[in-house]
């Protein structure tokens, strides 16, 4: 593999995983909702898409349907949280766990292969362009959406829910809606991942949340929060940088099974940095003095 191929394929990985990061950005950063559904809805998207492609359905249509099914999962979490008053994190876990069974039902077994089937991905150069276009398109759509009245209302529900209630907004519906958009992205991402790796697996979603969070935090560390557009672009760049980190670490001889530990360590470090960074700096100064 030459350098260019490595660059292209790693960036491509970054593109398709950034879709789920964009979804997680909506819940974690905009809505202030710790949504665990992600890990289930990503796999759901992957398995629905794989089964549809195996049945001869157009891969683009399959990907979109995978997104829609993902958004259904998100709205279930929203329903559990807002209408049944179950804690945010628990609502997500409940949906995620039930999706494990659902996904095996959908696929009929724990994993299915897409070998020899037509998917939206073909050869590397083309894939790279497709991944780039998908990201640009999704960022634009999200950006425009958050400029609308509904989008603004969703953002503010995350910022000050009490205020939105007294301004006459049905904040429950806003939350359910935001969760379904977020998981739409997760479903799409799952479909893209399944197509790029050539199979769907019931465990493909495990760890996604931490990966997505790491990407978001990497993006935020590099690009200080300015506007929502910059934020969205930063999420995608963060996701690409994350893939490069993983690539180098694997080349250093780490086992793929160690990646989850590594990801968690990176995420912990980056999440803690803004909080303890100042204290550490102070500590250094004290030592000097």
């Amino acid at each position: 593999m030459n350098i260019l191929n490595i660059l292209l394929s790693t960036t491509f990985q970054g593109f398709i995983y950034s879709v789920v990061s964009l979804g997680v950005y909506i819940t974690f950063r905009i809505l202030n909702f710790a949504d665990m559904t992600v890990e289930g809805s990503l796999t759901l998207g992957g398995s629905v898409c794989a089964v549809m492609i195996l049945n001869g359905i157009n891969p683009i249509l399959s990907t979109i349907i995978a997104g829609l099914v993902g958004s259904l999962a998100g709205s279930i979490t929203g329903f559990l949280n807002t209408k049944l008053k179950i804690q945010a994190i628990l609502s997500g876990i409940l949906t995620m766990i039930s999706l494990y069974s659902v996904n095996i039902r959908i696929m009929g077994k724990a994993n299915i292969s897409l070998l020899g089937k037509t998917t939206i991905f073909k050869e590397l150069n083309q894939n790279f362009i497709i991944g780039l276009l998908i990201c640009v398109f999704l960022i634009l759509i999200l950006y425009l959406f958050f400029k609308t009245r509904l989008g603004l209302a969703i953002c503010m529900t995350g910022d000050n829910e009490q205020m939105m209630k007294s301004q006459g907004a049905n904040t429950d519906l806003k939350k359910i809606f935001a969760l379904s958009i977020s998981n739409f992205f997760c479903g799409i991402s799952g479909a893209l991942i399944a197509q790029s790796q050539g199979y769907a697996d019931v465990n493909m979603g495990i760890g996604t949340l931490v990966i997505a969070l790491s990407s978001i935090v990497i993006g935020e560390t590099i690009f200080r929060k300015k506007s929502i557009l910059i934020d969205l672009i930063a999420v995608v760049l963060g996701s690409i940088i994350y893939r490069f980190i993983i690539y180098f670490v694997l080349n250093l001889g780490m086992k793929p099974s160690d990646l989850k530990l590594l990801t968690a360590i990176i995420a912990t470090f980056l999440l803690a940095l803004p909080n303890i960074g100042k204290d550490i700096l102070k500590g250094f100064k004290n030592v000097k003095n």
Binding site: F145, T148, R149, L150, L152, M156, M163, G168
Partner: peptide
């Protein structure tokens, strides 16, 4: 008020009390 949003955005939300929060630009 919503601290991470601008004065204008806060006022927009307040004027939408009687109208729908739809996909029109805010």
């Amino acid at each position: 008020t919503s601290p991470n949003f601008t004065i204008e955005e806060n006022l927009v939300i307040a004027t939408l009390k009687n109208s729908k929060r739809n996909l029109k630009f805010a």
